[in-house]
Every structure is written in structure tokens, then in C-alpha cells.
Amino acid sequence: MSNAQQSFSAGQTQGQTQAQAENFVQSTKESASAAADKANAAANSTGQTAEQNKDEAAGFLQQTGEQVKNMAQGAVDSVKQTLGMEK
């Protein structure tokens, strides 16, 4: 094989290797970007779920507080009635 053919073959191999490396780098960047997008979406979803759970817990506690207050008021009224202190 002549020097020209060897140089051509070496250049061709180098070009193919470089193209494959660039494709690999681009593919890796795209995969990393997709993974970051998925992680971001998961974080947002988790935050929204946590906020919703917090709101539901607050509503439950408020409702329970109202029930306890009403039960206490009923007990007070019952004692007043028993003792003849009602209006």
C-alpha cells in the first residue's frame, strides 16, 4: 500500500471515529437532558402532592376542631340543663 493510500485510510478512520464520538456525545447530552426533565417533573409532582396533602390535613384538623368544640358546647348545655341554669 502506498503512503497516499495509508494516509487516506488513516484519515478516513479518524473521520469515522470522530463522527462516532460526536454522535455518542450528542446522544449522552440528550439522555442527560431527558433525565433532568423527568427528575424536574417528578419533583414538581411531589411538591404538588405534598401541598395537597397539607391542605387536606389542615381541613381535617379544622373539621375535627369544630366537632370537638360542638361536643364541648353540647356538654356545657347539658350540664346547665341538668342544674337548671339554662336561660
Rank of each mutant, 00 (worst) to 15 (best):
58 A>P: 00
33 S>Q: 15
10 A>R: 01
3 N>D: 15
72 A>F: 01
11 G>A: 00
34 A>V: 04
70 N>Q: 13
12 Q>E: 11
24 F>K: 11
74 G>R: 10
20 Q>G: 04
69 K>M: 05
41 A>T: 03
8 F>L: 11
16 Q>H: 09
68 V>L: 08
22 E>I: 00
30 E>V: 07
51 E>Q: 10
46 T>Q: 15
75 A>K: 12
27 S>G: 11
44 N>M: 11
23 N>C: 08
56 E>Q: 09
55 D>L: 14
23 N>T: 06
6 Q>L: 10
40 N>R: 15
71 M>W: 08
31 S>L: 13
58 A>L: 03
22 E>L: 01
30 E>P: 02
6 Q>W: 05
46 T>E: 12
29 K>Q: 10
30 E>C: 06
45 S>Y: 06
17 T>N: 14
29 K>V: 05
45 S>R: 10
46 T>H: 10
57 A>D: 13
35 A>T: 07
33 S>W: 12
85 M>N: 11
22 E>P: 00
47 G>F: 05
66 E>W: 02
15 G>Q: 14
66 E>I: 06
84 G>A: 02
60 F>V: 14
18 Q>C: 08
49 T>F: 09
1 M>H: 11
59 G>S: 14
31 S>I: 08
10 A>N: 04
43 A>H: 10
16 Q>S: 12
64 T>V: 10
85 M>C: 08
8 F>D: 09
82 T>W: 15
87 K>G: 13
8 F>S: 05
54 K>N: 14
12 Q>P: 00
